[in-house]
Structure formats: structure tokens, C-alpha cells
């Protein structure tokens, strides 16, 4: 089996975009529902926020921030490719996308810990 096309960084970018999109789309209804329920009172919202203070929730939030930033940066690359015809330097654009995702994750982690 020829795996050459799959060894290209843009294939990895495709996989990251798809997996991050899938996980975010599954998380989204839960996020909206929990927020909508908690927002009904200041005490309830404070209760939810206190619950997210534990290390596991913080780690999960960091992963979500990285996934969201990765999906955003990867999505901008796809839009640039489709609508602006930016076909050159795709490896660099993939690297910049990954850098943006990790940067947001790191800044979030630094601020939240």
C-alpha cells in the first residue's frame, strides 16, 4: 500500500481538522446546555465555575482550547486555499496553524494555573 500522500503534513492537518471538528461538535450541545442551565441563577453559575476548578477539568479545558484554536487555524488555511487560491507554502501554513493552537493552549494554561 502506497502511504506517500498520507505522510505529507497537509494530510496530518486534515486529520487534526477532522478530529478537532468532530470532538468540538460533540461537545458543543453539552456546553450550551450546561451553560444555559447554570446561567439561570448567579449561585448556580458560581457552582459550575467552582466545579471547573479541579485539575482534571482544567486539563480538559486546556485540551478544548487547543482543539478550538487548531480547528480555527486549520479552517482559515482551508478557506485561504479554497477562496484565495493560496496553494504555495502549505507546509509553512500547517506549521503556523499548529503554532497558533499550541500558543493559545499555553497562554490559557499559564493564566488558569
Amino acid at each position: 500500500m502506497d502511504l506517500r500522500p498520507r505522510s505529507h503534513p497537509t494530510y496530518l492537518a486534515f486529520v487534526v481538522h477532522r478530529v478537532s471538528g468532530l470532538l468540538l461538535a460533540l461537545f458543543l450541545p453539552l456546553h450550551f446546555w450546561a451553560l444555559g442551565t447554570a446561567i439561570s441563577g448567579e449561585a448556580r453559575l458560581d457552582g459550575l465555575l467552582r466545579w471547573t476548578e479541579n485539575p482534571i477539568a482544567k486539563a480538559a479545558e486546556t485540551v478544548l482550547v487547543v482543539l478550538l484554536a487548531a480547528h480555527l487555524a486549520g479552517g482559515l488555511r482551508v478557506l485561504a486555499l479554497e477562496f484565495l487560491g493560496w496553494r504555495s507554502r502549505q507546509k509553512d501554513m500547517v506549521a503556523v496553524s499548529a503554532g497558533i493552537a499550541l500558543l493559545f493552549g499555553l497562554v490559557f494554561l499559564l493564566n488558569v494555573v
Partner: peptide, 11 residues
């Protein structure tokens, strides 16, 4: 998100 979480969040 990254700016608001600085110093903790409150309702």
C-alpha cells in the same frame, strides 16, 4: 477565554 480566566472566574 484566555484573558478572563486570569485570576479566576466568577458569575
Amino acid at each position: 477565554i484566555v484573558t478572563a480566566v486570569r485570576g479566576g472566574l466568577s458569575a
